[in-house]
Structure formats: C-alpha cells, structure tokens
C-alpha cells in the first residue's frame, strides 16, 4: 500500500509543488534583503563597535586617566600613560587601543566613571598598513568628536534600562 502511495506522490510531483508553494509565497512577499552598503540594517543602541573617547560640551576631554579600563580589559588591549597636566589635572599622555587584541566586550565602557571611553556602533573599518591596528588618543578623540551626536543619542536611548 505504501508503495502505491509513494508511486502516485512521485508521479504527480507533490513534493516539488509543495516546495514551489513556499518559493511562490516568497516571490510575492516583502523582501528583507538589504542592499549593503547602500542600505543598512538598524542597530541596537547597545551595539559594541569601534572605540571612541568623548569630550564634555565645553571641549574638555572626559578621560581622567584613572586607568580602570586598562585594569578591567580582559584582552590587555588598552595601554595608558598618565601625568599631571599644566593646570594640575590628571590626564593621559598616551591612550592606545589595540584593535586586534580587543574582543569588544564593552567592559572598558562599563568601568569608565566619566563615560569617556565608549564603543560606538561603527563596525566598518579596516587597516591598510601594519601597526594601524593600534589607535591612539588623538584618533580616538577624533572619532568621538565626529560621532558625538550618535554616541550621545545611543546612551540616551539606553539610559532607562540601566
């Protein structure tokens, strides 16, 4: 009996038609494919991408060289040297992040008492030369300056859940 059933199933291409029904359904349904890089999917405000150092609204850098990020970093990706600036405040003279070592865990951001080091939602970056994987303080502040509005709005959106 099962053999007969099988014969008719094969003869009338039932399985194929079942498959084609799914295909046909998808043919007319709304597409979810995104035309990257022209189009992009939305990202969570908690997305952990490229690092940045932020400034206060008056232009003063936030980082106070407390070195908590350096201490908490599980991959030892952060290197900081600190000193007393001329005005007597505690500042970094060097803030290096090795992007090859970094595992984008976001602990540095969690540890920072002044919201200085942050992980932005930038994930599209590449290096063309050896050594470019280490980004320094100047670069980090530049990134922070450039994307401050995005960074601030992401923190604002996430604030109620913290």
């Amino acid at each position: 009996m099962t053999m007969v059933k099988q014969f008719f199933k094969n003869f009338f291409l039932v399985e194929l038609l079942k498959g084609l029904r799914v295909t046909g359904g998808q043919l007319i349904s709304k597409k979810i494919t995104v035309q990257y890089p022209d189009e992009k999917t939305p990202k969570s405000p908690r997305f952990r991408g490229l690092h940045a150092l932020r400034r206060y609204a008056n232009g003063e850098e936030r980082c106070i060289a407390c070195k908590l990020c350096e201490a908490v970093c599980p991959a030892l990706a952060i290197t900081i040297d600190s000193t007393e600036r001329e005005d007597g405040t505690r500042r970094t003279t060097r803030y290096d992040v090795d992007l090859f070592k970094c595992i984008y865990c976001g602990f540095c951001e969690e540890a920072c008492p002044v919201d200085s080091i942050v992980l932005t939602d930038i994930h599209e970056f590449h290096f063309e030369e050896k050594g470019m994987n280490v980004i320094d303080k100047v670069k980090l502040l530049e990134i922070g300056d450039k994307y401050e509005r995005d960074i601030a709005s992401a923190r604002h959106k996430d604030a109620p859940y913290r």
């Binding site: 070195k67 350096e70 600190s82 000193t83 007393e84």
Partner: peptide, 9 residues
C-alpha cells in the same frame, strides 16, 4: 609620583 601610575599595576 603624582598621577604617573596606579598602585595595582
């Protein structure tokens, strides 16, 4: 020594 290092490192 002011501000040049942290004790734990």
């Amino acid at each position: 020594y002011r501000y040049s290092a942290r004790s734990w490192e």
